[in-house]
């Protein structure tokens, strides 16, 4: 749910990075954090286990610049990927304005991707959202790994509606900002649509 403050001319939106465990969600946020000017970002918070697996969420507040005097602020969240953290994932989806589905391109993770995408749909539906109506993009991450599925195959499997999709190597930053910009743009367009 976007939040517009008329007085301070600020618009705040929430973007959630979703996907199976270890697909690179936290790495996306870390890369964005590392490459952003200090004045455009807040602290990155990671509620993680001792082994750096996301326990509840990662959070990164980010300013993406001004549109006609409106400051655009995005709150980026990741969810914990492991199956048994489903209750936490549902909570993080509350009030979401845009979703990035990070897929793990490795052939061995095909089923995990499908399962996670299905889980995303279910959890959104439970709260009255539909993935088909929400600003939504996909990133095929880990393109640098040795045994990855061809992008065409991933696309067919995970992106039947042909939403914007990107190849990524989050650990080196490939595709990270492209993905973020694409979803941010869809979110702002949706805010505008609802305002007009």
């Amino acid at each position: 749910m976007s939040f517009i403050n008329v007085l301070s001319r600020e618009i705040n939106c929430k973007i959630v990075y979703y996907g199976p465990g270890l697909c690179g969600k936290t790495t996306n946020l870390q890369y964005i954090y590392n490459k952003t000017n200090p004045d455009a970002k807040g602290k990155m918070i990671s509620l993680a286990t001792e082994t750096e697996r996301t326990l509840f969420f990662d959070f990164l507040p980010l300013a993406l610049g001004e549109i006609r005097g409106f400051k655009t602020r995005f709150h980026l969240y990741t969810v914990p990927g492991q199956v048994f953290y489903d209750a936490s994932r549902k909570l993080i989806l509350k009030g979401v304005d845009g979703v990035v589905f990070v897929a793990d391109s490795q052939i061995a993770r095909t089923e995990a991707n499908l399962e996670s995408l299905e889980n995303l749909r279910t959890n959104l539906a439970e709260q009255g959202y539909s993935l088909d109506k929400l600003p939504y993009v996909i990133q095929y991450n880990k393109r640098d790994m040795p045994s990855v599925a061809p992008v065409e195959e991933l696309r067919e499997l995970l992106n039947p509606n042909k939403v914007p999709d990107f190849e990524g190597v989050a650990s080196t930053g490939v595709g990270v900002f492209e993905t973020l910009k694409a979803v941010a743009k869809l979110v702002l367009t949706e805010v505008k649509r609802q305002a007009g």
Binding site: I4, I11, R68, K185, T189, K192, A195, G196
Partner: peptide, 12 residues
């Protein structure tokens, strides 16, 4: 009053 309505796709 819709504060964001004045913004165009080009602005975005």
């Amino acid at each position: 009053e819709t504060p964001f309505a004045e913004i165009t796709d080009d602005d975005i």
